[in-house]
Nucleic acid binder design. Structure first.
Lengths: 234, 234
DNA sequence: CCAAAAGTGTTACGGCTACACCCATGT
DNA sequence: ACATGGGTGTAGCCGTAACACTTTTGG
């Protein structure tokens, strides 16, 4: 029976976020450099202790606001709990890890110790933060395929080729603009604003501007093999 | 700056599992009935406090072993953190929730207070445990489509119609045996053992026995729209 | 008129559903 | 023979990838 009196451990709980943004054609993550031991000079994820009066979602949003002035988080979601007893030196600390996404038209002012780093070329990271970044990247890549999560990487309006570059950078491989437009349009995610851009100095047809129909993530492709029998509506 | 000295809250951390099994044609979850306040007589998920020397995965496996004699967990995975400050009365308690799966040929002996309940017809549940059960059910349903997770619901060998009933119960809708066999075979998940069953008293062709090729979950259907360009191998 | 960039039309293909049909057994 | 349950063949559909082609601009 619950003999909780003999052993009722209390422990620290921190929240950490891998905040991702496509910058200069590559997927980057926000890291700050530690100024103290342990792991001095290594780069780590923003976050901090969970307070007693907030849940983990509120906590990570608060900490990101306080510490790194990122108010433009278009999307935040839980990744997983990281709880190895020795994941950080010293007293036990369990971490709830999050994925955060910033649209590419934002360029938040950062504190001195904070910088964006390409997820494919990370500096020396602290603790288990590299694993968290990898998880965040993989989660984003999956969700780009079967959800509308692209809205969280894109500006309010954009051309298809701009969107293609965002997707290519995030996915790590070339995406065809032709098919990207068709896939997203057929699913009803993309709608034309009616406006067009002026072509650059080298000419070319002016590009139509689009926006995402919904902000707020939703699964758009059931990708369900073994799906329920089709409703006979004919 | 991290003014952690003034506020360094320590809190309780529990691990909880929604252990699912297909029993009597329906998807069921293991619950025990509370004998004490708070929420006396309500039904709750097995689990308990996280110890200082273990991570959450080890903890949930240990607790399931100790408390409910389920040694046949074919699959365990993290679901999410539940952390609302008032999710349980009294001192702050954060929960890491898990999904557990038991193959249908096991019938573990249960303590007096513990019973299986259909996920579609739950009794009065304690705290936020109903939400956790829903999450577990939804996760299972998704993964049945694009992973080999069926192995964790099925006995070591089985007929296609037995498998069909497991899938139907878990998914909540009728699945065609014909297509189930083909989908799983094409993906290389299913292999024939060579044996057959004897038909029942009413006759019929004897069914071939199959097994899952791999135990251990893996994503089998990339379901990736926007997938990387095909490798030109011809 | 040509180059550049955007967007459309068309074909091919893979993977799935649906359903008709064939197979093997008990009575 | 025939009922019962298991398994296969095949046609059609849906959605995407690939690529040729058309459209619209600047020089």
């Amino acid at each position: 029976m619950p003999d909780a009196t003999t052993e009722a451990p209390l422990l620290g709980h921190e929240v950490l976020a891998a905040v991702l943004q496509v910058r200069a054609g590559s997927l980057q993550v926000l890291l700050w450099q530690r100024a103290r031991e342990p792991h001095m000079h290594r780069w780590s994820l923003p976050g901090g202790r969970l307070r007693l009066d907030e849940d983990v979602e509120h906590s990570i949003r608060r900490q990101l606001k306080e510490k790194v002035d990122v108010r433009q988080l278009a999307h935040v979601e839980q990744l997983a709990v990281f709880s190895a007893p020795d994941r950080v030196p010293g007293p036990r600390m369990v971490a709830s890890a999050f994925l955060g996404l910033v649209p590419s038209d934002n360029d938040p002012e950062l504190p001195e110790d904070t910088r964006w780093h390409p997820v494919g070329d990370l500096p020396e990271t602290a603790f288990d933060h590299q694993a968290i970044v990898r998880r965040a990247r993989d989660r984003l890549r999956s969700k780009l395929s079967y959800t509308n999560i692209g809205f969280a990487l894109a500006p309010p309006t954009f051309t298809v080729s701009a969107l293609r570059e965002l997707y290519s950078a995030a996915l790590g491989y070339r995406v065809s603009a032709t098919n990207l437009q068709r896939v997203l349009s057929r699913r009803g995610l993309l709608e034309p604003t009616g406006d067009t851009t002026r072509p650059g100095r080298s000419g070319g047809r002016p590009a139509a501007l689009f926006r995402f129909a919904d902000r707020g993530m939703q699964v758009t492709d059931p990708f369900a093999v073994l799906r329920p029998p089709a409703a006979k509506s004919r």
